[in-house]
C-alpha cells in the first residue's frame, strides 16, 4: 500500500511539472468539485422561467438562458455530474470486464485466448457509437443504459492493452522464474504480472475517460443518451443547435466545457504515457554495449 502511494505521488509530481498537464489536472479538479458540490451552489438547473427564455448573456445569467428560461451555467455545472458519473461508471465496467479478459487470454493463450478474443473482435466489429446506440435501442433510454452502453464499448481497449502487456511480460525471465521455483499460475497472474501492468492500464483509464465523456455527450446529442430533464452537455448542444440563428451563444459554454474536459483527459493521458515510458527507458539504457541478446 505504501509503495502504491509513493508511486502515485511520484507520478503526480511528474505530471505537475508539465504546464499542460498541470493545467489539465487543475481544470478537472475544479469540474469534479463543482459536480460534487453543485447542490451547495446557488444554482438551479431545473427552474424554468419561460419569460426569460433564450436570454443573451446578462448580469444574472452570465451565459444566458435556454429555451425554457433555465440558467445555462447551472445546467452546465449539473451536466458535469451526469458526464462524470457516466464516464466513471463506464470506465469501471470496461476495466472490470476488460482487464480480466486480457489477463486470462494473454496468460493462458490457446483456446481461452481464441474464444475471448473472438468475443472482443465482435465488440470491435462496429464503430463504438453504433454499438452503444444498438444497446440503448435494446435496453431503453436511461442513464444506466448510457453508462452500460459506453462501458461495454470500452471493454475491447482494456482487454487488448492488458493482453499485450501480459504477452510482453510472459516472455520476461522474472515471470518464468516464478514458474521455475514452483509458483502457481494464479500467483504468477495476480502477484507478478498484474502489479507490473498497472502503468498501461492506468493510462488507459485516463484515455478512456475522455472517450467515455465524448461518447456520452454524443449519445445525448443524438437524443438517445441520458433522458431529459437531467442536464447533460450533449443534450444542451442538441437543443442549442435548433436555435443557432436566434441564440448563437446557447451552444458556446457547454461546448467549451465539454471540449476542455476531453482535452484535459487527453493531455494527462499523453503526459502519463511519456512519464512512464521515460522511466522504462532508463532501465533498458543500462544494458551493456556488448551484451548478446
Amino acid at each position: 500500500m505504501k509503495k502504491w502511494l509513493q508511486a502515485l505521488r511520484r507520478n503526480l509530481v511528474a505530471l505537475m511539472r508539465r504546464p499542460g498537464a498541470a493545467l489539465s489536472v487543475i481544470f478537472l479538479l475544479a469540474i469534479t468539485l463543482a459536480a460534487i458540490f453543485a447542490d451547495f451552489l446557488p444554482l438551479d438547473p431545473l427552474r424554468q422561467r419561460v419569460a426569460n427564455a433564450l436570454m443573451p448573456p446578462n448580469g444574472t445569467n452570465w451565459f444566458g438562458t435556454d429555451e425554457l428560461g433555465r440558467d445555462i451555467i447551472a445546467r452546465v455545472v449539473y451536466g458535469a455530474r451526469t458526464s462524470l458519473i457516466t464516464a466513471a461508471g463506464a470506465v469501471a465496467i470496461a476495466a472490470a470486464v476488460g482487464v480480466p479478459i486480457g489477463l486470462v487470454a494473454g496468460f493462458f493463450g490457446g483456446w481461452r485466448d481464441a474464444v475471448l478474443m473472438r468475443f472482443i473482435d465482435v465488440l470491435l466489429a462496429l464503430p463504438g457509437i453504433l454499438f452503444a446506440m444498438a444497446m440503448i435501442a435494446v435496453l431503453g433510454r436511461s442513464q444506466l443504459a448510457a453508462l452500460i452502453a459506453v462501458g461495454v464499448t470500452g471493454i475491447p481497449s482494456f482487454a487488448r492493452i492488458t493482453r499485450a502487456q501480459v504477452l510482453a511480460l510472459r516472455k520476461r525471465d522474472f515471470v518464468t522464474a516464478v514458474e521455475s521455483f514452483g509458483g502457481s499460475s494464479g500467483y504468477n497472474m495476480f502477484r507478478t504480472i498484474l502489479p507490473n501492468s498497472w502503468s498501461p492500464i492506468l493510462v488507459q483509464v485516463v484515455v478512456l475517460s475522455s472517450v467515455a465523456i465524448l461518447l456520452e455527450a454524443a449519445l445525448a446529442f443524438l437524443g438517445v443518451g441520458v433522458p431529459p430533464p437531467t442536464p447533460s452537455w450533449g443534450e444542451m448542444l442538441r437543443t442549442g443547435k435548433n436555435y443557432l440563428y436566434e441564440a448563437p451563444y446557447y451552444a458556446i459554454l457547454p461546448g467549451i466545457v465539454l471540449t476542455l474536459t476531453i482535452l484535459s483527459f487527453d493531455t494527462i493521458g499523453r503526459a502519463l504515457t511519456e512519464i512512464l515510458e521515460d522511466r522504462h527507458d532508463t532501465g533498458a539504457g543500462l544494458k551493456p554495449e556488448g551484451s548478446k541478446a
Binding site: K3, R172, D173, F174, T176, A177, V178, S180, F181, G182, G183, Y187, T192, P195, N196, G283, A284, L286, K287, S291, A293
Partner: peptide, 29 residues
C-alpha cells in the same frame, strides 16, 4: 533444482525490493 537466467535485466521483478525477490521462492513454498 533451481534456475539462474541469462539476462539479469529481465529476470528480476521490477516492482519488488531485493529482499522480496530473494524471499519469493521461500514464500511460494
Amino acid at each position: 533444482m533451481q534456475y539462474v537466467f541469462q539476462d539479469p535485466f529481465s529476470s528480476l521483478n521490477p516492482v519488488l525490493a531485493v529482499e522480496d525477490i530473494i524471499a519469493e521462492p521461500l514464500r511460494i513454498h
